[in-house]
Nucleic acid binder design. Sequence first.
DNA 1: TCGATTGTCTAGCGGTGCTAGGATCGGGTC
DNA 2: GACCCGATCCTAGCACCGCTAGACAATCGA
Lengths: 192, 192
Amino acid sequence: MSVQERKERERASRERLIVATARELAEQQGWDAVTTRKLAERIEYSQPVLYSHFRGKREIIGAVALDGAAELAVALRAATAAADGPRARVTALARGYLDFAERNPAVYDALFQLDGGLAFAQEDTPEPLKDAFAALLECLGEVAGEGVHPGVFTELFWASLHGLATLTRAGRLPRAFAEQRVELLVDRLAVV
Amino acid sequence: MSVQERKERERASRERLIVATARELAEQQGWDAVTTRKLAERIEYSQPVLYSHFRGKREIIGAVALDGAAELAVALRAATAAADGPRARVTALARGYLDFAERNPAVYDALFQLDGGLAFAQEDTPEPLKDAFAALLECLGEVAGEGVHPGVFTELFWASLHGLATLTRAGRLPRAFAEQRVELLVDRLAVV
DNA sequence: TCGATTGTCTAGCGGTGCTAGGATCGGGTC
DNA sequence: GACCCGATCCTAGCACCGCTAGACAATCGA
């Protein structure tokens, strides 16, 4: 029995290695460079080993996304915890979100740009995704305003942040006035 | 001389055919299905012909994006023209934008999701892109509010719309409350 | 120690974007 | 009208992609 347990541990460890390596490679050279061949070479196994852990590349992206969602939730809660008052918390949240996207572009892509085969906004949505949204909701629910559904408000605020993050990173928005845009977003959307 | 002119006309015509076919194929089956082989087959030429018009697939996407930008500008101006008053114009603009993204997903992707090799928010940005942004600015400049730079405000509003469009289409936002989100966005961001 | 099972690798499939080099076609010149 | 030459196009192929069948080796239980 102990032998089987050891094997399971080793297997789980290798799976973590695959996900971590995929993420590392993606952050270094972009997701286009994350090919099954390169990934297999980096973990020092052959390609088919990847397919004994994941159905395919999509599922690997999904695994990176789930890790990222958990980290995003932690980052958001850490950002808001240090701030005093609803207004400051929302500003900190927005900055924390955009900062996360900027610092972890590959993870952000895995989460929100690429197809990782994950279900969003549904019953079978994985827990880390729900929790990341919950982290947003905890802070934004305070400033939704009278008669506005907190969930809908959070979705809108999130969408705005997502738009800013993606358009900025793709060079479609100039970085020059990034801070003004964030302040304007918080000023207008949040009801203090 | 006339012979040469005829050849140039035919060449330009074939180039339009390539772009139109790429767009059609992308709208029908998604950009992943737009391979140089399928595209070449549809226009009834061999693959290398594509490369006598464009440097590569990226440039073809860029050409579709430019066409789309011109159409988007027209659609936005048409949407706002029918509305009375700044508030109604902004609502119409937002709906028009999201409607365009929903109806032309492949074109929208070419414009704002994929890499078409186009410069954004720079001096050498192609005219259709500048004009599409101008169409947004014309309407949104009216409601930026005191002391807020119209351009920065437009960028923020656009980013919010972009976030709503992409997250909704990717199934990351439920379609259920789409209309509420738009109304909330206009209510809060626009200063009437 | 042997057989079965599990695990891994080699090799290869059909596909991708892109290109080198040969064939062919048509226009301009004698 | 015949010929040459340049422009134009296609065939064939490169290196790479995601993914998988089947051979092989290592390990376990009897």
